[in-house]
């Protein structure tokens, strides 16, 4: 099998360039890298066809080796079509990403970051409960009032104000919740980051996977069915904003 050294070199250069571009964080370059790599692969298939020859249409008196191999050409054609489809899809996706976040970059998975930043101490699982020593506790006295304090303290921000209700339940007021301002212009506006500011998926309150409350904010969503309930949702979401939401706790006596 004879090999065309020029084609081989071109293929190598294309692969090298493709891999280099793939290692970039910019999506357009990643796309260019993919295009280079798929085309280099097509070239590889063609090289594997061996020496070029006659068109593969049977003629009398020709050796089988005189024809060029039609199969790799068919394979190349198929893979060209496939890479074309994928390139156009990627372009559409990159455009969408640009529209949403004004960033042409591979973005960080916020959920990953959240999991990574999670402290190994989980108040709910690991906090020590105090034993009840007295049999004659007041009905409304909570033997684990301290537990409430322990779990209400966020190690990064310090203690949060804890308010004891009259019925014995303990309520933690989050500071973020207090600073909340009424939002105008609907959720879409609240979700959309400022130009060039935030990557997609990290726009403040979006620090967890989109649940239904948030998916309602997708551009294709219908208007909320119960405006009243929707407003309530928004307030709920706002509470999530603060750092270390894990430390805060709202607990009833039940």
């Amino acid at each position: 099998m004879s090999v065309n050294i020029v084609l081989l070199l071109v293929m190598g250069v294309m692969f090298a360039g493709g891999v280099y571009l793939l290692l970039e964080r910019t999506l357009t370059r990643v796309l260019l890298g993919l295009i280079l790599m798929t085309n280099a692969t097509n070239l590889l298939i063609l090289i594997m066809a061996g020496a070029p020859g006659q068109a593969p249409i049977v003629e009398d008196g020709l050796e089988p080796s005189a024809y060029s191999d039609p199969l790799p050409q068919a394979l190349t054609l198929t893979s060209i079509v496939i890479s074309f489809a994928i390139t156009s899809f990627m372009l559409g996706m990159i455009y969408r990403s640009w529209k949403l976040g004004r960033r042409d970059e591979v973005l960080v998975d916020t959920e990953d970051v959240k999991v990574a930043e999670q402290p190994s101490f989980d108040a709910e699982d690991d906090a020590e409960l105090l034993e009840e020593t007295s049999e004659f506790l007041d009905e409304y006295e909570d033997p684990n009032a301290d537990y409430e304090h322990a779990t209400a303290i966020n190690p990064s921000t310090g203690a949060l104000p804890v308010k004891h209700q009259r019925d014995g339940s303990v309520r933690v007021r989050s500071q973020v919740g207090r600073q909340e301002k009424p939002i105008r212009g609907g959720r879409r506006a609240a979700q959309e980051p400022e130009e060039g500011e935030h990557p997609v998926g990290s726009s403040g309150h979006d620090d967890h996977l989109p649940d239904e409350d948030e998916r309602a904010g997708s551009p294709r969503a219908r208007p909320p069915r119960f405006p009243e309930q929707q407003r309530d949702d928004r307030r709920q979401d706002k509470r999530d904003d603060g750092p270390g939401a894990r430390g805060r706790r709202r607990k009833g006596e039940g």
Partner: peptide
């Protein structure tokens, strides 16, 4: 949506 495009890329 934003998260899906991010994951999709």
């Amino acid at each position: 949506t934003g998260p899906r495009v991010r994951a999709g890329v």
